[in-house]
Design a protein around this nucleic acid. Sequence first.
DNA 1: TTCATGGTTTGATCGTAACCGAAGCATCAT
DNA 2: ATGATGCTTCGGTTACGATCAAACCATGAA
Lengths: 232, 232
Amino acid sequence: MKEGPDIARIATLIGDPARANMLMALMGGQALTATELAGAAGVTLATASAHLSKLEDGGLLSQRRQGRHRYFALADSAVAGLLENLAGLAATRGHLRHRPGPRDPALRRARICYDHLAGDFGVRMLDSLIGRGAIMADGEALQLTESGHRFFCEIGVDVDALKTPRRPLCRACLDWSERRSHLGGALGKAIFQHILAEGLAKREPESRAIRFTREGERRFLALFPVQDADAA
Amino acid sequence: MKEGPDIARIATLIGDPARANMLMALMGGQALTATELAGAAGVTLATASAHLSKLEDGGLLSQRRQGRHRYFALADSAVAGLLENLAGLAATRGHLRHRPGPRDPALRRARICYDHLAGDFGVRMLDSLIGRGAIMADGEALQLTESGHRFFCEIGVDVDALKTPRRPLCRACLDWSERRSHLGGALGKAIFQHILAEGLAKREPESRAIRFTREGERRFLALFPVQDADAA
DNA sequence: TTCATGGTTTGATCGTAACCGAAGCATCAT
DNA sequence: ATGATGCTTCGGTTACGATCAAACCATGAA
């Protein structure tokens, strides 16, 4: 009967709406305090506290006390990966809670997905990279090409520094708003940081939305041109 | 608050122990009847029926009536991927339910993981493939090399026929018993089918375990030799 | 037809866990 | 000290959903 790991344990953990909201909030990649998370989940601080301990000793969250604050973050990118996976499936299965229409336009346009760019801008970027032959797609597996390597070095992303056994360089991440893939992995993270560092865009304070400056958007589109009509 | 897809909905679906057991049973890759699944979950047929409808209109299961039987299977490999992901995380987080010790030795040795080989034999095979340069590993991303392509053609696996946009050729799948990766994806499936077709091994009837014949094991090890001491 | 088998529906029971308010601890500021 | 803020613990309420037995509906066999 019960062979293998206890899959139900963590699924239950994620299955509670309040906890799910907290986790999704943490997909923003930055640590949040208990009170902030309580707000995000729409519950009292008391209940939030209970949820957070459960999540923590479920191994999904890491926690750091700092003064009288308690900061929580996703335990690591494996957890983020699982959540992405879940979100991707949830977006395509069963009755969709929200129709694909623009619920929060800013979010659909550009947002942060744990540590890389997602939304319309995210999938466009990956499309462009594939189109120019910088990345080769084989199903959902992605591979950086020679020319892609050169391209990133030119624009100032040190690809070689990213090669770690712990995390794949390129990862396809299913975008729930666009229902297509965008670029995750170490490279996705590095590009995103590059974009922020260059001042093309910056994070909205209380949200996962990313706001591009007028000039930033122009430069972004120049860097990642869209060839023509996009495929469904 | 509630931005994005309803992650909690499917997590809840998976979070119930009975349903989780059913899903894990279906990771065997073959369709099972409602009664069989009831047995696997350890519940009455009545409750199983209720669970199955939920899973089905949650989009996790596909169902086919045949005579007076009703066969259920995982909806597709995306669902299987999510379950793998969950199992991998569950195996490494929190209190492990079963210690890594040999709970069911046959399962730890060789078993089926949706449609490819897992367990000790599975990770050995991937190790060997990486060791001989047939596959390149970059983090958890895997890439078939030229020489690997030749190798598989020689042993009778038609790699080119596997290239589909729908599913990646190579996929690293975290093995819960070994805590290391084995080979999934279209190639993993093809190799496994090849192994069965060649009669090196066959499935245990009521389990996910794979039994290698004495001769089959010899040929398997010859095909995928282990270089030396394996890394942790 | 009649009977058996596979599966669903109904109705009722029961447990668990999510939730909140209030009280209790810390940590920092004054 | 005194007070404020951030968080946890406690007690009690409530609701949802998992479960089963029994009745019911289908399909196939005799």
